[in-house]
Write a protein that binds this DNA or RNA. Structure first.
Length: 283
DNA sequence: CTCGGAGCCTGTCTGC
DNA sequence: TGCAGACAGGCTCCGA
Protein backbone atom coordinates (compact mmCIF):
# COMPACT_ATOMS: atom_id res chain seq x y z
CA UNK A 1 0.00 0.00 0.00
CA UNK A 2 2.51 2.58 -0.96
CA UNK A 3 0.96 5.98 -0.32
CA UNK A 4 2.66 9.35 -0.44
CA UNK A 5 5.19 8.79 2.39
CA UNK A 6 6.26 5.42 1.02
CA UNK A 7 6.71 6.74 -2.51
CA UNK A 8 8.57 9.78 -1.18
CA UNK A 9 10.89 7.48 0.78
CA UNK A 10 11.60 5.38 -2.28
CA UNK A 11 12.31 8.42 -4.45
CA UNK A 12 14.67 9.97 -1.90
CA UNK A 13 16.60 6.73 -1.62
CA UNK A 14 16.78 5.95 -5.31
CA UNK A 15 17.53 9.40 -6.70
CA UNK A 16 21.22 9.57 -5.69
CA UNK A 17 21.76 6.08 -7.03
CA UNK A 18 20.18 6.32 -10.44
CA UNK A 19 20.14 9.95 -11.55
CA UNK A 20 22.79 10.52 -14.20
CA UNK A 21 22.95 6.87 -15.20
CA UNK A 22 22.12 5.55 -18.65
CA UNK A 23 19.70 2.76 -19.43
CA UNK A 24 21.57 -0.10 -21.04
CA UNK A 25 18.92 -2.79 -21.27
CA UNK A 26 15.27 -3.33 -20.38
CA UNK A 27 13.76 -6.66 -19.41
CA UNK A 28 10.00 -7.05 -19.38
CA UNK A 29 9.19 -10.28 -17.55
CA UNK A 30 5.43 -9.86 -17.22
CA UNK A 31 3.55 -9.93 -20.51
CA UNK A 32 0.87 -7.73 -18.96
CA UNK A 33 3.44 -4.92 -19.11
CA UNK A 34 4.46 -5.71 -22.66
CA UNK A 35 4.29 -2.52 -24.65
CA UNK A 36 6.22 -1.37 -27.62
CA UNK A 37 8.33 1.09 -25.70
CA UNK A 38 11.32 -0.72 -24.18
CA UNK A 39 13.49 0.08 -27.19
CA UNK A 40 12.86 3.81 -26.68
CA UNK A 41 14.53 3.64 -23.30
CA UNK A 42 17.85 2.27 -24.44
CA UNK A 43 20.70 4.70 -24.01
CA UNK A 44 18.48 7.32 -22.40
CA UNK A 45 19.95 9.16 -19.44
CA UNK A 46 17.98 9.41 -16.21
CA UNK A 47 17.84 13.17 -15.72
CA UNK A 48 15.80 13.14 -12.54
CA UNK A 49 13.59 11.14 -10.25
CA UNK A 50 10.59 12.58 -8.49
CA UNK A 51 7.22 11.85 -6.96
CA UNK A 52 3.91 12.91 -8.48
CA UNK A 53 1.08 12.00 -6.14
CA UNK A 54 1.69 8.31 -5.59
CA UNK A 55 3.61 7.87 -8.82
CA UNK A 56 7.35 7.60 -9.23
CA UNK A 57 8.56 9.56 -12.25
CA UNK A 58 11.84 8.79 -13.99
CA UNK A 59 12.79 11.68 -16.22
CA UNK A 60 14.51 10.37 -19.32
CA UNK A 61 16.56 12.35 -21.76
CA UNK A 62 16.82 11.00 -25.28
CA UNK A 63 19.90 9.11 -26.45
CA UNK A 64 22.90 11.31 -27.09
CA UNK A 65 23.21 12.22 -30.74
CA UNK A 66 19.61 11.35 -31.54
CA UNK A 67 17.80 13.95 -33.56
CA UNK A 68 14.36 14.52 -32.09
CA UNK A 69 11.57 15.23 -34.51
CA UNK A 70 10.19 18.72 -34.68
CA UNK A 71 8.10 19.69 -31.65
CA UNK A 72 9.53 16.75 -29.72
CA UNK A 73 12.48 17.37 -27.47
CA UNK A 74 12.90 13.63 -26.89
CA UNK A 75 12.12 13.93 -23.19
CA UNK A 76 10.06 11.09 -21.75
CA UNK A 77 8.77 10.22 -18.33
CA UNK A 78 8.66 6.65 -17.19
CA UNK A 79 5.74 6.63 -14.75
CA UNK A 80 5.75 3.88 -12.14
CA UNK A 81 2.62 3.28 -10.09
CA UNK A 82 3.09 0.71 -7.35
CA UNK A 83 -0.61 0.39 -6.48
CA UNK A 84 -0.95 -2.32 -3.85
CA UNK A 85 2.11 -4.49 -3.70
CA UNK A 86 4.54 -2.93 -6.12
CA UNK A 87 8.17 -2.31 -5.21
CA UNK A 88 10.91 -0.43 -7.00
CA UNK A 89 14.25 -1.50 -5.62
CA UNK A 90 17.80 -0.62 -6.61
CA UNK A 91 20.00 -3.66 -7.00
CA UNK A 92 23.66 -2.76 -7.01
CA UNK A 93 24.40 -6.06 -8.72
CA UNK A 94 27.07 -7.05 -6.25
CA UNK A 95 28.65 -10.45 -6.78
CA UNK A 96 27.28 -13.28 -4.70
CA UNK A 97 23.65 -12.29 -5.15
CA UNK A 98 21.24 -15.18 -5.69
CA UNK A 99 20.56 -15.74 -9.36
CA UNK A 100 17.01 -17.02 -8.90
CA UNK A 101 14.34 -14.68 -10.24
CA UNK A 102 11.14 -14.61 -8.20
CA UNK A 103 7.98 -14.78 -10.28
CA UNK A 104 6.85 -11.44 -8.88
CA UNK A 105 9.64 -9.55 -10.67
CA UNK A 106 7.88 -7.89 -13.57
CA UNK A 107 10.60 -5.76 -15.13
CA UNK A 108 14.24 -4.81 -14.78
CA UNK A 109 16.00 -1.68 -15.96
CA UNK A 110 19.70 -2.34 -16.31
CA UNK A 111 21.78 0.79 -15.80
CA UNK A 112 25.48 1.60 -16.22
CA UNK A 113 25.92 0.43 -12.66
CA UNK A 114 23.27 -1.74 -11.02
CA UNK A 115 19.62 -1.99 -11.97
CA UNK A 116 16.13 -0.95 -11.00
CA UNK A 117 13.88 -3.89 -10.21
CA UNK A 118 10.10 -3.59 -10.48
CA UNK A 119 8.52 -6.29 -8.37
CA UNK A 120 4.78 -6.69 -7.82
CA UNK A 121 3.04 -9.77 -6.47
CA UNK A 122 -0.53 -8.78 -7.31
CA UNK A 123 0.34 -7.21 -10.64
CA UNK A 124 -1.86 -4.16 -10.10
CA UNK A 125 1.06 -1.81 -10.58
CA UNK A 126 1.71 -0.07 -13.86
CA UNK A 127 4.63 1.18 -15.93
CA UNK A 128 4.04 3.62 -18.73
CA UNK A 129 6.11 5.90 -20.86
CA UNK A 130 4.73 9.32 -21.69
CA UNK A 131 5.70 12.80 -22.72
CA UNK A 132 5.88 15.07 -19.68
CA UNK A 133 2.94 17.15 -20.88
CA UNK A 134 0.79 14.03 -21.15
CA UNK A 135 1.19 13.09 -17.50
CA UNK A 136 -1.71 14.24 -15.37
CA UNK A 137 -0.74 15.63 -12.00
CA UNK A 138 -4.09 14.75 -10.39
CA UNK A 139 -5.25 16.72 -7.36
CA UNK A 140 -3.34 19.06 -5.08
CA UNK A 141 -0.25 17.59 -3.44
CA UNK A 142 -0.56 17.89 0.34
CA UNK A 143 3.12 18.72 0.69
CA UNK A 144 2.91 21.81 -1.51
CA UNK A 145 2.00 25.37 -0.57
CA UNK A 146 -1.15 25.05 -2.63
CA UNK A 147 -2.61 22.74 0.00
CA UNK A 148 -4.22 25.37 2.23
CA UNK A 149 -7.29 25.08 4.42
CA UNK A 150 -9.08 27.42 2.05
CA UNK A 151 -8.21 25.20 -0.91
CA UNK A 152 -9.40 22.11 0.93
CA UNK A 153 -12.68 23.84 1.77
CA UNK A 154 -13.14 24.77 -1.90
CA UNK A 155 -12.57 21.14 -2.88
CA UNK A 156 -15.09 19.97 -0.28
CA UNK A 157 -17.75 22.30 -1.67
CA UNK A 158 -20.51 20.61 -3.63
CA UNK A 159 -19.82 17.06 -2.49
CA UNK A 160 -21.95 15.03 -0.12
CA UNK A 161 -19.51 12.14 0.12
CA UNK A 162 -18.32 10.90 3.49
CA UNK A 163 -14.98 12.45 4.29
CA UNK A 164 -12.89 9.26 4.46
CA UNK A 165 -13.76 7.96 0.98
CA UNK A 166 -13.43 11.55 -0.23
CA UNK A 167 -9.85 11.77 1.01
CA UNK A 168 -8.94 8.77 -1.15
CA UNK A 169 -9.86 10.65 -4.31
CA UNK A 170 -6.60 11.30 -6.10
CA UNK A 171 -8.24 13.87 -8.37
CA UNK A 172 -8.86 16.04 -5.29
CA UNK A 173 -5.90 15.46 -3.00
CA UNK A 174 -3.07 13.41 -4.49
CA UNK A 175 -1.20 11.01 -2.29
CA UNK A 176 -3.45 9.92 0.56
CA UNK A 177 -4.44 6.28 0.86
CA UNK A 178 -6.48 4.31 3.34
CA UNK A 179 -3.89 4.27 6.12
CA UNK A 180 -3.10 7.97 6.28
CA UNK A 181 -6.69 9.05 5.63
CA UNK A 182 -7.76 7.11 8.74
CA UNK A 183 -4.84 8.41 10.79
CA UNK A 184 -5.35 12.04 9.78
CA UNK A 185 -9.06 11.94 10.61
CA UNK A 186 -8.27 10.46 14.01
CA UNK A 187 -5.71 13.15 14.70
CA UNK A 188 -8.20 15.83 13.60
CA UNK A 189 -10.95 14.23 15.72
CA UNK A 190 -13.33 14.11 12.79
CA UNK A 191 -15.62 11.16 12.14
CA UNK A 192 -14.81 9.37 8.86
CA UNK A 193 -18.57 9.08 8.31
CA UNK A 194 -19.18 12.84 8.19
CA UNK A 195 -20.27 14.15 4.78
CA UNK A 196 -17.69 16.70 3.67
CA UNK A 197 -20.29 19.47 3.33
CA UNK A 198 -20.90 19.31 7.10
CA UNK A 199 -17.26 19.97 7.94
CA UNK A 200 -16.82 23.56 9.05
CA UNK A 201 -13.88 25.91 8.56
CA UNK A 202 -12.22 25.18 11.88
CA UNK A 203 -12.45 21.44 11.28
CA UNK A 204 -11.12 21.81 7.76
CA UNK A 205 -8.10 23.68 9.08
CA UNK A 206 -7.59 21.00 11.71
CA UNK A 207 -7.82 18.26 9.11
CA UNK A 208 -5.29 19.95 6.83
CA UNK A 209 -2.87 20.26 9.71
CA UNK A 210 -3.43 16.62 10.70
CA UNK A 211 -2.81 15.40 7.16
CA UNK A 212 0.48 17.31 6.99
CA UNK A 213 1.54 16.09 10.42
CA UNK A 214 0.81 12.44 9.68
CA UNK A 215 2.50 12.51 6.29
CA UNK A 216 5.61 14.23 7.60
CA UNK A 217 5.91 11.87 10.55
CA UNK A 218 5.48 8.88 8.24
CA UNK A 219 8.15 10.14 5.84
CA UNK A 220 10.50 10.61 8.78
CA UNK A 221 9.82 7.01 9.79
CA UNK A 222 10.46 5.73 6.27
CA UNK A 223 6.81 4.84 5.63
CA UNK A 224 4.50 2.11 6.89
CA UNK A 225 5.16 -1.56 6.23
CA UNK A 226 1.96 -3.42 6.91
CA UNK A 227 2.84 -6.44 4.85
CA UNK A 228 4.15 -5.80 1.38
CA UNK A 229 5.74 -2.38 1.29
CA UNK A 230 9.51 -2.15 0.94
CA UNK A 231 11.61 0.95 0.37
CA UNK A 232 14.07 1.55 -2.47
CA UNK A 233 16.64 -0.62 -0.73
CA UNK A 234 14.30 -3.45 0.12
CA UNK A 235 13.95 -2.32 3.74
CA UNK A 236 10.83 -1.95 5.89
CA UNK A 237 9.17 1.23 7.10
CA UNK A 238 8.83 2.00 10.79
CA UNK A 239 5.60 4.00 10.97
CA UNK A 240 3.40 0.92 11.52
CA UNK A 241 4.42 1.02 15.18
CA UNK A 242 3.00 4.51 15.50
CA UNK A 243 -0.40 4.03 13.88
CA UNK A 244 -3.15 5.13 16.23
CA UNK A 245 -6.17 3.49 14.61
CA UNK A 246 -5.36 1.76 11.31
CA UNK A 247 -5.43 -2.01 11.71
CA UNK A 248 -6.20 -1.69 15.43
CA UNK A 249 -9.89 -2.65 15.58
CA UNK A 250 -10.79 -3.77 19.09
CA UNK A 251 -7.73 -2.17 20.68
CA UNK A 252 -8.27 0.73 23.03
CA UNK A 253 -7.93 4.34 21.89
CA UNK A 254 -4.77 5.82 23.39
CA UNK A 255 -6.63 9.01 24.27
CA UNK A 256 -9.90 7.75 25.79
CA UNK A 257 -9.64 3.94 26.03
CA UNK A 258 -12.70 3.39 23.85
CA UNK A 259 -12.33 0.34 21.58
CA UNK A 260 -11.31 1.27 18.03
CA UNK A 261 -14.02 0.38 15.54
CA UNK A 262 -13.79 -0.85 12.00
CA UNK A 263 -16.48 -0.14 9.43
CA UNK A 264 -16.75 -0.58 5.69
CA UNK A 265 -17.00 2.51 3.51
CA UNK A 266 -17.28 2.12 -0.26
CA UNK A 267 -15.80 -1.36 0.03
CA UNK A 268 -12.81 -0.30 2.12
CA UNK A 269 -12.04 -0.64 5.79
CA UNK A 270 -12.17 2.45 7.94
CA UNK A 271 -10.72 2.49 11.45
CA UNK A 272 -11.69 5.15 13.98
CA UNK A 273 -12.40 5.93 17.61
CA UNK A 274 -16.19 6.33 17.95
CA UNK A 275 -15.69 8.56 20.99
CA UNK A 276 -12.89 10.91 19.90
CA UNK A 277 -14.36 10.99 16.40
CA UNK A 278 -18.01 11.34 17.30
CA UNK A 279 -20.32 11.63 14.28
CA UNK A 280 -21.83 14.85 15.55
CA UNK A 281 -19.71 17.91 16.18
CA UNK A 282 -16.54 17.35 18.19
CA UNK A 283 -15.64 18.85 21.58
C1' DC B 1 -22.79 15.15 -12.37
C1' DT B 2 -22.24 12.25 -8.36
C1' DC B 3 -21.50 8.21 -6.11
C1' DG B 4 -21.21 3.18 -5.16
C1' DG B 5 -19.87 -1.26 -6.66
C1' DA B 6 -17.44 -4.71 -9.67
C1' DG B 7 -13.23 -6.16 -11.41
C1' DC B 8 -8.39 -6.58 -11.66
C1' DC B 9 -4.69 -9.93 -9.00
C1' DT B 10 -2.49 -13.46 -5.76
C1' DG B 11 -0.66 -14.62 -1.09
C1' DT B 12 -2.38 -15.38 3.42
C1' DC B 13 -5.59 -16.44 6.76
C1' DT B 14 -9.97 -18.67 8.50
C1' DG B 15 -13.33 -22.21 8.94
C1' DC B 16 -15.29 -26.57 7.80
C1' DT C 1 -4.36 -32.06 7.06
C1' DG C 2 -6.58 -30.12 3.00
C1' DC C 3 -9.19 -27.25 0.60
C1' DA C 4 -12.57 -23.59 -0.47
C1' DG C 5 -13.67 -19.04 0.34
C1' DA C 6 -12.88 -14.51 2.31
C1' DC C 7 -9.92 -10.79 2.50
C1' DA C 8 -6.53 -7.13 1.46
C1' DG C 9 -7.01 -2.50 -1.51
C1' DG C 10 -5.54 1.70 -5.52
C1' DC C 11 -7.59 2.67 -9.37
C1' DT C 12 -10.66 2.44 -13.63
C1' DC C 13 -14.88 1.58 -15.59
C1' DC C 14 -19.79 1.28 -15.62
C1' DG C 15 -24.47 1.96 -14.25
C1' DA C 16 -28.04 3.92 -11.16
Amino acid sequence: MPELPEVETIVRQLAPKVVGQRVQRVEILDSKLALDWPACLIDCRIGGLHRLGKQIILELNGPRGAKPAAEDDGRRWLCVHLRMTGRLIFDAGLPGEPSKTPRSIRARLHLDEGMLVFQDVRRFGTLRLAKPEEVCAGGVDPLTKAFTARRLAQLFAGSRMAVKPWLLRQDKVAGLGNIYACEALYLARISPLRPVHTIDAAETARLRKAILHVLKQAIEAGGTTFSDYRDGQGGRGRFQNRLAVYGRAGELCKACATPIERVNQSGRSTFYCPNCQAPLQGP
